[in-house]
Computed example of a mutant assay.
Amino acid sequence: MLWEGISEFVHVAESNSFTQASQQLGISTAQVSRQVSALEKRLNTKLFYRTTRKVSLTEEGQIFYQHCRGVLDGLEAAERAITNLQATPQGKIKLTAPVTYGEQQVLPLINDFIQIYPDLEVTALLTNQNMDLVENGFDLAIRIGNLADSTLIAKKLGKRTNYVCAAPSYIEKYGMPHSLSELEQHSCLMGTNDYWRFIDNGKERNIRLSGRLRYNSGIALADAALKGLGIVQLPNYYLQSYLDSGQLIALLDNYKIPNETIWAIYPQNRHLSAKIRLLIDYLAAGLT
């Protein structure tokens, strides 16, 4: 009786949604609503403001949530302490990562990881949108560059380098740019943005450019550069093998932006389980 409705209450409080809470708990929305209503009746206190569009905590609900969250964290820690005694990590992991970086860098490492720990189940959503980890039930997210959300805990996994480059055939035919202003005289292979990023006199600059081709695919842009169709700016994981082999030549290195950090992030109101810690360490070793 004492614990009835607590888990449902906490999930609604963290997602601001009875529907989201029901999906995370694997029960019906009606059941979540009944449990929370029974809890409010037992406490003789209104815990949520409810409208047709929004659910939010009352002042009493906020106080009660802080205490309940601490209790549930303690229970989760106790469960992990028992689970960690087992030789093999097991259970489910849900993560999200950017599409191309996830395809090329993260998921191959995940495949290796679950070969080592076969009792794990991994669900990955690749998207370039910054998903809400708590609302969508993610254990982990991989993100690139500056992190705006200070409510998340972040661990550095590696770095991404952006290059400007072209094929030797293009350089032989059209020459090599030596300054940012010269880029306007060249065919630039553009992605979804109409600008490229550089460092000029110690400050970051966005240079607006245009060209014959505009793709929302880094793989296609790299292929166009290999075929001598123009100059491209892309992250290293599209280009590194071609740069190493000499099929592409790096340009304008004096203006290259600093390396961007690859992060693993997770909510700060969650203690890091052994399986997630193992995965983060494995990714850090593989992505460095």
Rank of each mutant, 00 (worst) to 15 (best):
Q23R: 15
Q24C: 02
Q24Y: 01
Q24H: 12
L25E: 04
L25F: 04
I27D: 04
I27G: 03
I27N: 04
T29G: 02
T29V: 07
T29K: 14
A30V: 09
V32E: 02
S33E: 07
R34T: 09
Q35N: 14
Q35G: 03
Q35L: 13
V36C: 13
V36I: 12
S37V: 06
S37F: 06
S37W: 05
A38Q: 13
L39F: 13
E40D: 05
E40F: 05
K41L: 07
K41F: 02
K41C: 01
K41R: 12
K41T: 11
K41N: 11
R42T: 11
R42D: 12
L43I: 02
L43T: 01
N44Y: 02
T45K: 15
T45A: 12
K46Q: 15
K46T: 15
K46L: 10
L47V: 09
L47F: 09
F48Y: 09
Y49M: 07
Y49N: 14
R50K: 15
T51A: 07
T51N: 07
K54Y: 10
V55E: 00
V55K: 00
L57N: 01
L57Y: 01
L57C: 01
T58I: 03
E59R: 11
E60G: 00
G61H: 02
Q62I: 02
I63F: 04
F64H: 08
Y65M: 06
Q66P: 00
Q66C: 00
H67S: 09
C68E: 04
C68Y: 04
R69N: 12
G70C: 04
V71G: 06
V71C: 06
L72H: 09
L72F: 09
L72P: 08
D73A: 14
L75D: 03
E76A: 12
A77F: 07
A78Y: 07
E79N: 08
E79K: 14
E79D: 11
R80T: 05
A81L: 08
A81V: 00
T83S: 14
N84Q: 14
N84V: 04
N84I: 03
L85Q: 15
Q86T: 06
Q86M: 09
A87K: 10
A87Y: 07
T88P: 00
P89W: 06
Q90R: 12
Q90I: 00
G91E: 05
K92H: 11
K92I: 03
K94P: 03
